[in-house]
């Protein structure tokens, strides 16, 4: 998918100062909340799951707007990611905070979607591998199909926390499994 097919959910993306992190608190808060929408919207459209704090990232959409001739600085990129993490739309993947997993759906939403699928398609009380959830034919028409292992795991952990599933660690990540429990009403 080409990035030029994407159109921003906010007109502010076309505004040059949108790419300068604003010094005034209230304005910056608004700006970052708009950026959160932009990033989630873009990543969802492009099926992009990670953002690196790198020049390469800052040079590409949605952080670079060729028409407005503006791009984010690395510092700006980092501030947006921090804001997303803070609001539950991302999680840092490394200690140094240079790579963020994007939750264009929050983990609880992924969890709910996965559980709904398991329950609707008769996969309760049996063990599935995470690999089959991500890549299997049974989930091809699901929004969570193709979700990276790391994010899938976070979603399933949310289900585990609700007592709706249990995760089994395999010898490699592809062999990790999960068992969905039917819920007593």
């Amino acid at each position: 998918m080409e990035s030029n097919q994407w159109s921003s959910p906010t007109e502010f993306w076309d505004l040059p100062p949108f790419f300068t992190i604003q010094p005034t608190d209230a304005t910056r808060e608004k700006q970052l909340s708009l950026w959160l929408q932009v990033v989630c919207h873009y990543c969802r459209a492009q099926r992009q799951y990670f953002i690196d704090i790198s020049e390469r990232m800052a040079d590409s959409a949605p952080f670079h707007n060729a028409k407005a001739k503006r791009k984010l600085t690395l510092d700006g990129l980092r501030k947006i990611c921090s804001y997303m993490v803070q609001h539950g739309h991302g999680v840092w993947m490394d200690e140094g905070q240079n790579r963020m997993a994007v939750f264009w759906r929050k983990p609880q939403e992924w969890a709910a979607a996965i559980y709904r699928w398991a329950s609707d398609s008769g996969h309760l009380n049996s063990v599935e591998t995470l690999f089959s959830l991500r890549e299997g034919d049974d989930t091809r028409d699901q929004d969570f199909h193709g979700l990276p292992h790391e994010i899938l795991l976070i979603a399933l952990q949310a289900l585990e926390g609700q007592g709706k599933a249990q995760i089994f660690r395999g010898s490699s990540s592809d062999h990790d499994g999960v068992k969905f429990f039917s819920q007593a009403a």
Binding site: P17, T20, T24
Partner: peptide, 14 residues
């Protein structure tokens, strides 16, 4: 204007 949020500053002017 900046403090009151009337304007947004743009420091990447070519």
């Amino acid at each position: 204007f900046l403090r009151e949020g009337l304007v947004w500053v743009d420091t990447q002017v070519t």
